[in-house]
Nucleic acid binder design. Structure first.
Length: 463
RNA sequence: CGCGGGGUGGAGAAGUGGAAUCUCGGCAGGCUCAUAACCUGCAGACCGUCGGUUCGAAUCCGACCCCCGCACCCA
Protein backbone atom coordinates (compact mmCIF):
# COMPACT_ATOMS: atom_id res chain seq x y z
CA UNK A 1 0.00 0.00 0.00
CA UNK A 2 1.34 3.40 -0.84
CA UNK A 3 1.33 6.07 1.76
CA UNK A 4 -0.88 9.08 1.21
CA UNK A 5 1.37 11.93 0.20
CA UNK A 6 1.76 14.88 2.52
CA UNK A 7 -0.34 17.43 0.69
CA UNK A 8 0.82 21.05 0.80
CA UNK A 9 -0.73 23.95 -1.05
CA UNK A 10 -0.07 27.61 -1.66
CA UNK A 11 -2.84 29.87 -2.88
CA UNK A 12 -3.01 30.09 -6.63
CA UNK A 13 -1.83 33.52 -7.57
CA UNK A 14 -3.89 36.06 -9.40
CA UNK A 15 -2.25 36.75 -12.73
CA UNK A 16 -3.22 40.35 -13.16
CA UNK A 17 0.40 41.22 -12.53
CA UNK A 18 3.87 39.73 -12.16
CA UNK A 19 4.81 37.78 -9.03
CA UNK A 20 6.04 39.91 -6.17
CA UNK A 21 7.79 39.35 -2.89
CA UNK A 22 4.63 38.33 -1.09
CA UNK A 23 3.81 35.45 -3.39
CA UNK A 24 7.46 34.45 -3.25
CA UNK A 25 7.27 34.37 0.55
CA UNK A 26 4.34 31.97 0.63
CA UNK A 27 5.78 29.76 -2.05
CA UNK A 28 9.23 29.55 -0.50
CA UNK A 29 7.67 28.53 2.80
CA UNK A 30 5.71 25.77 1.11
CA UNK A 31 8.84 24.67 -0.70
CA UNK A 32 10.83 24.47 2.53
CA UNK A 33 8.14 22.37 4.13
CA UNK A 34 7.90 20.01 1.20
CA UNK A 35 11.67 19.66 0.93
CA UNK A 36 11.72 18.85 4.61
CA UNK A 37 9.24 16.01 4.23
CA UNK A 38 10.87 14.69 1.09
CA UNK A 39 14.11 14.61 3.01
CA UNK A 40 12.38 12.38 5.55
CA UNK A 41 11.32 10.07 2.72
CA UNK A 42 7.71 11.10 3.10
CA UNK A 43 6.01 11.42 -0.27
CA UNK A 44 4.81 14.94 -0.88
CA UNK A 45 2.26 16.57 -3.11
CA UNK A 46 3.12 20.25 -3.35
CA UNK A 47 0.61 22.22 -5.39
CA UNK A 48 0.74 25.80 -6.54
CA UNK A 49 -0.63 27.58 -9.57
CA UNK A 50 -2.36 30.58 -11.02
CA UNK A 51 -5.83 32.05 -10.73
CA UNK A 52 -6.74 33.33 -14.16
CA UNK A 53 -10.39 34.32 -14.29
CA UNK A 54 -12.33 37.42 -13.40
CA UNK A 55 -12.92 40.91 -14.56
CA UNK A 56 -9.62 42.32 -13.32
CA UNK A 57 -7.78 39.94 -15.56
CA UNK A 58 -9.94 40.71 -18.56
CA UNK A 59 -9.14 44.38 -17.88
CA UNK A 60 -5.41 43.77 -17.60
CA UNK A 61 -5.48 41.88 -20.88
CA UNK A 62 -7.48 44.62 -22.54
CA UNK A 63 -5.02 47.21 -21.29
CA UNK A 64 -2.34 45.34 -23.21
CA UNK A 65 -4.54 44.87 -26.19
CA UNK A 66 -4.39 41.14 -25.80
CA UNK A 67 -6.87 38.32 -25.83
CA UNK A 68 -7.44 36.99 -22.33
CA UNK A 69 -5.96 33.59 -22.96
CA UNK A 70 -2.80 35.05 -24.52
CA UNK A 71 -2.37 37.35 -21.56
CA UNK A 72 -2.88 34.70 -18.89
CA UNK A 73 -0.56 32.30 -20.70
CA UNK A 74 2.17 34.88 -20.55
CA UNK A 75 1.76 35.81 -16.90
CA UNK A 76 1.33 32.23 -15.82
CA UNK A 77 4.58 31.45 -17.56
CA UNK A 78 6.18 34.28 -15.67
CA UNK A 79 5.11 32.71 -12.39
CA UNK A 80 6.64 29.41 -13.42
CA UNK A 81 9.85 31.14 -14.35
CA UNK A 82 9.93 32.93 -11.02
CA UNK A 83 9.50 29.71 -9.09
CA UNK A 84 12.27 28.16 -11.12
CA UNK A 85 14.51 31.08 -10.24
CA UNK A 86 13.64 30.68 -6.57
CA UNK A 87 14.41 26.98 -6.63
CA UNK A 88 10.85 25.95 -5.92
CA UNK A 89 10.14 22.29 -6.53
CA UNK A 90 6.40 21.96 -6.80
CA UNK A 91 4.72 18.80 -8.01
CA UNK A 92 1.66 20.24 -9.70
CA UNK A 93 0.98 23.63 -11.19
CA UNK A 94 -2.73 24.23 -11.54
CA UNK A 95 -4.17 26.89 -13.80
CA UNK A 96 -7.81 27.76 -13.43
CA UNK A 97 -8.04 27.89 -17.22
CA UNK A 98 -6.99 24.22 -17.42
CA UNK A 99 -9.68 22.15 -19.03
CA UNK A 100 -9.56 19.63 -16.20
CA UNK A 101 -10.13 22.38 -13.65
CA UNK A 102 -13.01 23.95 -15.54
CA UNK A 103 -14.68 20.56 -15.75
CA UNK A 104 -14.12 19.91 -12.09
CA UNK A 105 -15.54 23.25 -11.00
CA UNK A 106 -18.61 22.74 -13.14
CA UNK A 107 -19.09 19.25 -11.75
CA UNK A 108 -18.79 20.45 -8.19
CA UNK A 109 -21.30 23.19 -8.85
CA UNK A 110 -23.72 20.69 -10.33
CA UNK A 111 -23.29 18.71 -7.17
CA UNK A 112 -23.96 21.72 -4.96
CA UNK A 113 -27.11 22.37 -6.91
CA UNK A 114 -28.23 18.77 -6.59
CA UNK A 115 -27.73 19.03 -2.88
CA UNK A 116 -29.98 22.03 -2.84
CA UNK A 117 -27.24 24.34 -1.60
CA UNK A 118 -27.68 26.90 -4.38
CA UNK A 119 -30.59 29.17 -5.09
CA UNK A 120 -31.25 32.09 -7.35
CA UNK A 121 -31.50 35.40 -5.59
CA UNK A 122 -30.97 39.08 -5.97
CA UNK A 123 -27.63 40.75 -5.45
CA UNK A 124 -27.79 44.41 -4.68
CA UNK A 125 -24.92 46.81 -4.64
CA UNK A 126 -23.38 50.08 -5.66
CA UNK A 127 -22.14 49.70 -9.18
CA UNK A 128 -19.77 51.86 -11.16
CA UNK A 129 -20.63 51.54 -14.82
CA UNK A 130 -17.19 52.68 -15.92
CA UNK A 131 -15.36 50.17 -13.71
CA UNK A 132 -18.04 47.61 -14.40
CA UNK A 133 -17.88 46.47 -10.80
CA UNK A 134 -19.46 46.79 -7.40
CA UNK A 135 -18.02 49.19 -4.88
CA UNK A 136 -18.02 49.08 -1.14
CA UNK A 137 -19.30 52.26 0.53
CA UNK A 138 -15.83 52.78 2.01
CA UNK A 139 -14.29 52.81 -1.45
CA UNK A 140 -16.26 55.83 -2.51
CA UNK A 141 -15.58 59.51 -2.41
CA UNK A 142 -18.03 61.83 -0.74
CA UNK A 143 -21.31 62.03 -2.55
CA UNK A 144 -21.02 58.42 -3.72
CA UNK A 145 -18.48 59.03 -6.46
CA UNK A 146 -16.22 56.28 -7.73
CA UNK A 147 -12.61 57.05 -6.81
CA UNK A 148 -11.33 56.11 -10.22
CA UNK A 149 -13.89 57.64 -12.51
CA UNK A 150 -15.36 60.30 -10.27
CA UNK A 151 -18.75 59.38 -11.47
CA UNK A 152 -21.74 58.51 -9.41
CA UNK A 153 -22.24 54.84 -8.67
CA UNK A 154 -25.65 53.34 -9.26
CA UNK A 155 -27.62 51.14 -6.99
CA UNK A 156 -28.42 48.11 -9.10
CA UNK A 157 -29.76 44.61 -8.68
CA UNK A 158 -28.92 41.47 -10.56
CA UNK A 159 -30.12 37.94 -10.33
CA UNK A 160 -27.36 35.56 -9.40
CA UNK A 161 -26.91 32.22 -7.69
CA UNK A 162 -26.27 32.09 -3.99
CA UNK A 163 -24.54 29.45 -1.91
CA UNK A 164 -26.19 28.69 1.42
CA UNK A 165 -23.15 29.66 3.42
CA UNK A 166 -25.15 30.84 6.41
CA UNK A 167 -26.18 27.31 7.31
CA UNK A 168 -22.60 26.21 7.94
CA UNK A 169 -21.63 28.59 10.73
CA UNK A 170 -22.49 26.26 13.59
CA UNK A 171 -20.79 23.22 12.11
CA UNK A 172 -17.69 25.17 11.20
CA UNK A 173 -17.46 26.65 14.65
CA UNK A 174 -17.64 23.20 16.15
CA UNK A 175 -15.02 21.74 13.80
CA UNK A 176 -12.61 24.55 14.54
CA UNK A 177 -13.19 24.44 18.27
CA UNK A 178 -12.67 20.70 18.52
CA UNK A 179 -9.55 20.93 16.38
CA UNK A 180 -10.71 18.94 13.38
CA UNK A 181 -9.88 21.98 11.32
CA UNK A 182 -6.74 23.58 12.68
CA UNK A 183 -6.21 27.24 11.99
CA UNK A 184 -2.87 28.73 12.89
CA UNK A 185 -1.50 30.91 14.32
CA UNK A 186 -3.91 30.98 17.22
CA UNK A 187 -4.84 34.60 16.67
CA UNK A 188 -6.13 33.71 13.23
CA UNK A 189 -8.19 30.94 14.75
CA UNK A 190 -9.66 33.42 17.20
CA UNK A 191 -10.36 35.82 14.40
CA UNK A 192 -12.20 33.14 12.45
CA UNK A 193 -14.24 32.08 15.45
CA UNK A 194 -15.12 35.73 15.93
CA UNK A 195 -16.48 35.94 12.40
CA UNK A 196 -18.48 32.77 12.91
CA UNK A 197 -19.91 34.12 16.10
CA UNK A 198 -21.23 37.10 14.21
CA UNK A 199 -22.96 34.73 11.82
CA UNK A 200 -22.61 34.24 8.08
CA UNK A 201 -24.52 35.57 5.13
CA UNK A 202 -25.19 33.55 2.03
CA UNK A 203 -22.63 34.10 -0.67
CA UNK A 204 -23.23 35.19 -4.24
CA UNK A 205 -21.31 32.59 -6.23
CA UNK A 206 -22.14 33.60 -9.77
CA UNK A 207 -21.89 36.81 -11.73
CA UNK A 208 -24.03 37.87 -14.64
CA UNK A 209 -21.76 40.71 -15.72
CA UNK A 210 -18.39 39.00 -15.71
CA UNK A 211 -17.60 37.35 -19.03
CA UNK A 212 -14.12 35.96 -18.39
CA UNK A 213 -14.86 33.03 -16.14
CA UNK A 214 -16.24 29.52 -15.93
CA UNK A 215 -19.85 29.40 -17.13
CA UNK A 216 -22.45 27.93 -14.84
CA UNK A 217 -23.36 24.66 -16.56
CA UNK A 218 -27.12 25.22 -16.28
CA UNK A 219 -27.16 28.96 -16.73
CA UNK A 220 -24.47 29.76 -19.27
CA UNK A 221 -25.13 33.49 -19.18
CA UNK A 222 -23.49 33.53 -15.78
CA UNK A 223 -19.95 32.81 -14.70
CA UNK A 224 -18.81 31.31 -11.46
CA UNK A 225 -17.51 33.73 -8.86
CA UNK A 226 -13.71 33.77 -9.09
CA UNK A 227 -13.10 32.84 -5.48
CA UNK A 228 -15.26 29.73 -5.72
CA UNK A 229 -13.47 28.88 -8.94
CA UNK A 230 -10.09 29.51 -7.36
CA UNK A 231 -10.65 27.63 -4.12
CA UNK A 232 -11.69 24.52 -5.96
CA UNK A 233 -8.25 24.33 -7.56
CA UNK A 234 -7.05 22.45 -4.51
CA UNK A 235 -9.61 19.81 -5.20
CA UNK A 236 -8.75 19.65 -8.89
CA UNK A 237 -5.13 19.04 -7.98
CA UNK A 238 -5.88 16.47 -5.32
CA UNK A 239 -4.38 13.32 -6.93
CA UNK A 240 -4.46 10.57 -4.31
CA UNK A 241 -3.64 12.94 -1.52
CA UNK A 242 -6.96 14.34 -0.33
CA UNK A 243 -7.34 16.15 2.01
CA UNK A 244 -4.56 18.76 2.18
CA UNK A 245 -2.34 18.48 5.24
CA UNK A 246 -1.25 22.10 5.26
CA UNK A 247 -2.61 24.98 3.28
CA UNK A 248 -0.39 28.01 3.50
CA UNK A 249 -2.03 31.34 2.84
CA UNK A 250 -1.52 35.02 3.52
CA UNK A 251 -3.54 36.59 6.29
CA UNK A 252 -5.50 38.66 3.80
CA UNK A 253 -7.29 35.66 2.40
CA UNK A 254 -8.03 33.97 5.70
CA UNK A 255 -11.73 34.51 5.43
CA UNK A 256 -11.94 32.71 2.12
CA UNK A 257 -9.90 29.78 3.29
CA UNK A 258 -11.14 29.41 6.83
CA UNK A 259 -14.82 29.92 6.13
CA UNK A 260 -15.94 29.80 2.52
CA UNK A 261 -13.61 27.00 1.50
CA UNK A 262 -14.43 24.55 4.31
CA UNK A 263 -18.12 25.37 3.90
CA UNK A 264 -17.93 24.45 0.23
CA UNK A 265 -16.22 21.21 1.15
CA UNK A 266 -18.80 20.38 3.80
CA UNK A 267 -21.48 21.06 1.23
CA UNK A 268 -19.79 18.73 -1.22
CA UNK A 269 -19.32 16.06 1.41
CA UNK A 270 -15.53 16.21 1.21
CA UNK A 271 -13.00 16.04 4.02
CA UNK A 272 -11.62 19.32 5.26
CA UNK A 273 -7.96 20.29 5.13
CA UNK A 274 -6.16 19.44 8.33
CA UNK A 275 -4.47 22.73 8.79
CA UNK A 276 -4.68 26.23 7.42
CA UNK A 277 -1.75 28.45 8.25
CA UNK A 278 -2.00 32.17 7.60
CA UNK A 279 1.32 33.95 7.52
CA UNK A 280 1.97 37.64 8.00
CA UNK A 281 2.83 40.42 5.63
CA UNK A 282 5.80 42.48 4.73
CA UNK A 283 6.04 46.16 4.85
CA UNK A 284 8.77 47.61 2.70
CA UNK A 285 11.04 49.89 4.66
CA UNK A 286 8.12 50.52 6.97
CA UNK A 287 5.49 51.11 4.29
CA UNK A 288 2.74 48.91 3.03
CA UNK A 289 3.76 47.23 -0.19
CA UNK A 290 1.39 48.46 -2.86
CA UNK A 291 1.49 49.26 -6.50
CA UNK A 292 0.39 52.80 -5.86
CA UNK A 293 3.46 53.42 -3.70
CA UNK A 294 5.60 51.82 -6.38
CA UNK A 295 7.49 49.89 -3.76
CA UNK A 296 6.58 46.44 -4.96
CA UNK A 297 9.66 44.28 -4.61
CA UNK A 298 10.68 41.95 -7.42
CA UNK A 299 11.98 38.67 -6.00
CA UNK A 300 13.80 37.69 -9.17
CA UNK A 301 15.84 40.87 -9.20
CA UNK A 302 16.83 40.24 -5.58
CA UNK A 303 17.91 36.71 -6.44
CA UNK A 304 20.08 37.94 -9.25
CA UNK A 305 21.72 40.44 -7.00
CA UNK A 306 22.14 38.40 -3.82
CA UNK A 307 21.53 34.78 -4.73
CA UNK A 308 18.44 32.65 -4.25
CA UNK A 309 19.52 31.28 -0.92
CA UNK A 310 20.05 34.75 0.47
CA UNK A 311 16.47 35.67 -0.30
CA UNK A 312 15.11 32.38 1.01
CA UNK A 313 17.16 32.79 4.17
CA UNK A 314 16.17 36.37 4.79
CA UNK A 315 12.46 35.87 4.27
CA UNK A 316 12.19 32.96 6.66
CA UNK A 317 14.75 34.06 9.22
CA UNK A 318 13.91 37.71 9.71
CA UNK A 319 10.66 37.28 11.62
CA UNK A 320 8.30 34.50 12.71
CA UNK A 321 6.08 33.03 10.04
CA UNK A 322 2.66 34.26 11.01
CA UNK A 323 3.84 37.66 12.22
CA UNK A 324 4.18 40.78 10.16
CA UNK A 325 7.64 42.01 9.40
CA UNK A 326 9.58 44.53 7.46
CA UNK A 327 11.64 44.09 4.34
CA UNK A 328 14.41 46.34 3.25
CA UNK A 329 17.49 45.77 1.20
CA UNK A 330 19.61 47.07 4.08
CA UNK A 331 18.19 44.40 6.36
CA UNK A 332 18.78 41.76 3.75
CA UNK A 333 22.37 42.91 3.40
CA UNK A 334 22.82 42.80 7.16
CA UNK A 335 21.63 39.22 7.25
CA UNK A 336 23.84 38.33 4.38
CA UNK A 337 26.91 39.86 5.92
CA UNK A 338 26.46 38.70 9.49
CA UNK A 339 24.79 35.34 9.17
CA UNK A 340 25.68 33.95 5.78
CA UNK A 341 29.01 35.46 4.91
CA UNK A 342 30.65 35.86 8.29
CA UNK A 343 29.14 33.17 10.49
CA UNK A 344 28.49 30.36 8.04
CA UNK A 345 30.67 31.05 5.01
CA UNK A 346 33.70 31.89 7.03
CA UNK A 347 33.20 28.86 9.28
CA UNK A 348 33.19 26.47 6.36
CA UNK A 349 36.26 28.14 4.96
CA UNK A 350 38.30 28.00 8.16
CA UNK A 351 37.49 24.38 8.86
CA UNK A 352 38.34 23.25 5.36
CA UNK A 353 41.53 25.27 5.34
CA UNK A 354 42.67 23.70 8.59
CA UNK A 355 41.95 20.22 7.33
CA UNK A 356 44.13 20.94 4.37
CA UNK A 357 46.83 22.87 6.10
CA UNK A 358 47.25 20.33 8.88
CA UNK A 359 46.71 17.44 6.47
CA UNK A 360 43.98 15.80 8.45
CA UNK A 361 41.88 13.54 6.27
CA UNK A 362 38.31 12.97 7.39
CA UNK A 363 36.06 10.33 5.90
CA UNK A 364 32.49 11.31 5.21
CA UNK A 365 30.25 10.21 8.03
CA UNK A 366 26.62 10.06 8.89
CA UNK A 367 25.79 13.44 10.24
CA UNK A 368 23.61 13.59 13.32
CA UNK A 369 20.42 15.42 12.48
CA UNK A 370 19.36 18.63 14.03
CA UNK A 371 16.15 17.33 15.57
CA UNK A 372 15.20 20.63 17.14
CA UNK A 373 15.35 22.40 13.81
CA UNK A 374 13.27 19.70 12.15
CA UNK A 375 10.60 19.98 14.81
CA UNK A 376 10.41 23.71 14.32
CA UNK A 377 10.14 23.27 10.57
CA UNK A 378 7.18 20.95 10.94
CA UNK A 379 5.51 23.54 13.11
CA UNK A 380 6.20 26.17 10.46
CA UNK A 381 8.45 27.98 12.91
CA UNK A 382 11.00 28.59 10.21
CA UNK A 383 12.82 31.35 12.03
CA UNK A 384 13.33 29.15 15.06
CA UNK A 385 14.57 26.27 12.93
CA UNK A 386 17.18 28.54 11.38
CA UNK A 387 18.16 29.90 14.77
CA UNK A 388 18.76 26.31 15.92
CA UNK A 389 21.04 25.69 12.98
CA UNK A 390 22.88 28.92 13.61
CA UNK A 391 23.42 27.86 17.19
CA UNK A 392 25.44 25.02 15.71
CA UNK A 393 27.34 27.44 13.51
CA UNK A 394 28.13 29.61 16.49
CA UNK A 395 29.02 26.55 18.53
CA UNK A 396 31.49 25.43 15.91
CA UNK A 397 33.11 28.86 15.79
CA UNK A 398 33.39 28.86 19.57
CA UNK A 399 34.88 25.38 19.56
CA UNK A 400 37.63 26.46 17.21
CA UNK A 401 38.57 29.37 19.41
CA UNK A 402 38.46 27.24 22.53
CA UNK A 403 40.53 24.34 21.18
CA UNK A 404 42.95 26.41 19.12
CA UNK A 405 43.83 23.85 16.42
CA UNK A 406 46.79 25.99 15.36
CA UNK A 407 48.31 25.31 18.79
CA UNK A 408 47.30 21.66 18.78
CA UNK A 409 49.08 21.22 15.47
CA UNK A 410 52.30 21.91 17.36
CA UNK A 411 51.51 20.11 20.62
CA UNK A 412 48.93 17.39 20.20
CA UNK A 413 48.30 16.02 16.69
CA UNK A 414 45.95 13.36 18.02
CA UNK A 415 43.66 15.85 19.66
CA UNK A 416 43.90 18.05 16.61
CA UNK A 417 42.48 15.23 14.51
CA UNK A 418 39.65 14.71 16.98
CA UNK A 419 38.74 18.37 17.04
CA UNK A 420 38.76 18.69 13.27
CA UNK A 421 36.65 15.58 12.96
CA UNK A 422 34.10 17.01 15.38
CA UNK A 423 34.00 20.20 13.36
CA UNK A 424 33.64 18.27 10.14
CA UNK A 425 30.66 16.40 11.54
CA UNK A 426 29.11 19.62 12.74
CA UNK A 427 29.36 21.01 9.25
CA UNK A 428 27.71 17.89 7.89
CA UNK A 429 24.83 18.37 10.31
CA UNK A 430 24.58 22.03 9.41
CA UNK A 431 24.64 21.27 5.70
CA UNK A 432 21.95 18.63 5.98
CA UNK A 433 19.83 20.86 8.19
CA UNK A 434 20.03 23.65 5.66
CA UNK A 435 18.85 21.57 2.74
CA UNK A 436 15.18 22.57 2.86
CA UNK A 437 16.04 26.21 3.41
CA UNK A 438 19.14 26.84 1.35
CA UNK A 439 19.27 23.95 -1.11
CA UNK A 440 22.08 25.40 -3.20
CA UNK A 441 24.28 26.16 -0.23
CA UNK A 442 23.56 22.79 1.29
CA UNK A 443 24.74 20.91 -1.75
CA UNK A 444 27.82 23.08 -2.08
CA UNK A 445 28.72 22.42 1.54
CA UNK A 446 28.20 18.73 0.96
CA UNK A 447 30.48 18.76 -2.07
CA UNK A 448 33.16 20.71 -0.22
CA UNK A 449 33.09 18.34 2.72
CA UNK A 450 33.46 15.41 0.36
CA UNK A 451 36.70 16.90 -0.82
CA UNK A 452 35.60 19.06 -3.70
CA UNK A 453 37.44 22.30 -4.14
CA UNK A 454 35.95 25.61 -5.02
CA UNK A 455 37.66 28.83 -5.83
CA UNK A 456 34.50 30.75 -5.18
CA UNK A 457 33.64 31.29 -1.50
CA UNK A 458 30.14 30.25 -0.38
CA UNK A 459 29.13 33.81 0.30
CA UNK A 460 31.54 36.30 -1.21
CA UNK A 461 31.66 39.86 0.09
CA UNK A 462 29.04 42.10 -1.46
CA UNK A 463 30.33 44.57 -3.95
C1' C B 1 -19.24 51.00 18.43
C1' G B 2 -17.57 45.96 17.98
C1' C B 3 -13.88 41.95 16.97
C1' G B 4 -8.59 40.32 16.52
C1' G B 5 -3.39 41.55 17.30
C1' G B 6 0.37 44.56 19.53
C1' G B 7 3.23 48.41 22.85
C1' U B 8 10.27 45.02 26.54
C1' G B 9 17.76 48.60 26.34
C1' G B 10 19.53 52.96 19.96
C1' A B 11 16.96 49.08 16.25
C1' G B 12 14.48 44.23 15.87
C1' A B 13 12.71 40.46 18.87
C1' A B 14 12.26 36.22 23.11
C1' G B 15 10.14 35.72 27.55
C1' U B 16 2.66 34.25 30.25
C1' G B 17 4.33 34.43 38.44
C1' G B 18 10.31 33.76 41.17
C1' A B 19 17.62 36.63 39.77
C1' A B 20 15.25 40.73 32.56
C1' U B 21 17.29 37.03 27.49
C1' C B 22 18.96 37.01 22.28
C1' U B 23 20.51 39.29 17.56
C1' C B 24 22.15 43.83 15.22
C1' G B 25 24.46 48.41 16.27
C1' G B 26 28.23 51.05 20.00
C1' C B 27 32.74 50.47 23.07
C1' A B 28 37.02 47.59 24.82
C1' G B 29 40.04 43.30 24.61
C1' G B 30 41.75 38.39 22.65
C1' C B 31 43.23 35.27 18.59
C1' U B 32 45.54 34.33 13.80
C1' C B 33 42.88 28.56 11.20
C1' A B 34 39.55 31.93 8.36
C1' U B 35 35.83 35.79 3.72
C1' A B 36 39.14 43.05 7.78
C1' A B 37 36.13 37.38 9.31
C1' C B 38 35.99 34.57 14.52
C1' C B 39 35.97 34.53 20.13
C1' U B 40 35.53 37.20 24.95
C1' G B 41 33.91 41.19 27.94
C1' C B 42 31.48 46.09 28.89
C1' A B 43 27.75 49.99 28.52
C1' G B 44 22.55 50.45 27.66
C1' A B 45 15.45 48.67 29.50
C1' C B 46 12.39 51.32 36.32
C1' C B 47 9.24 45.62 30.40
C1' G B 48 2.82 51.86 27.20
C1' U B 49 0.14 54.56 31.75
C1' C B 50 -2.43 54.25 36.45
C1' G B 51 -4.42 51.10 40.10
C1' G B 52 -5.14 46.06 42.15
C1' U B 53 -4.10 40.60 43.45
C1' U B 54 0.36 38.07 45.50
C1' C B 55 5.68 36.65 49.93
C1' G B 56 6.86 37.82 44.78
C1' A B 57 4.33 40.38 38.14
C1' A B 58 6.98 42.07 31.96
C1' U B 59 4.05 37.71 33.09
C1' C B 60 -2.66 37.49 36.55
C1' C B 61 -7.07 41.23 37.23
C1' G B 62 -9.31 46.29 36.22
C1' A B 63 -9.29 51.08 33.87
C1' C B 64 -7.00 54.13 30.37
C1' C B 65 -3.58 55.84 26.22
C1' C B 66 -1.27 54.77 21.52
C1' C B 67 -0.34 51.61 16.95
C1' C B 68 -1.92 47.82 13.21
C1' G B 69 -5.70 44.63 10.74
C1' C B 70 -11.01 43.46 9.88
C1' A B 71 -16.22 40.51 4.67
C1' C B 72 -16.06 39.46 -1.25
C1' C B 73 -9.17 44.39 -4.67
C1' C B 74 -4.70 42.38 -2.28
C1' A B 75 0.89 36.88 -0.48
Amino acid sequence: MTKKPFFITTPIYYVNDAPHLGSAYTTIAADVLSRHYRGQNTPVLFVTGTDEHGKKIADSAAAKNQKEHIFVDAVSKQFKATWAALNIHYDTFIRTTDEVHIKNVQNQFELLKEKDLLYKGTYEGLYCVSCEEYKQPDDLMEGGLCLIHRRKVEEIKENVWFFKLSGFATTLKKLIEEGTLVIEPERRRNETLGWLKEGLRDLAVSRSKVKWGIPLPWDKAQTIYVWADALLNYHTARAQAWPPDVQIIGKDILRFHAIIWPALLLGLGLNLPKKIFAHGFFTVAGHKMTKTLKNVVDPVALCKKYGVDTLRYFLLREFPFGDDGDFSEEKLQQRYKNDLQHDLGNLVQRVLTMEEKYTVKIEPGIAPRCAQAELHTERLEFDKALIEIWNLVRGANELIDREKPWVLSQTDPHKLATVLKTLHRMLETIGAGLEPYLPETASRIKALLAGGRSAEPLFPPLK
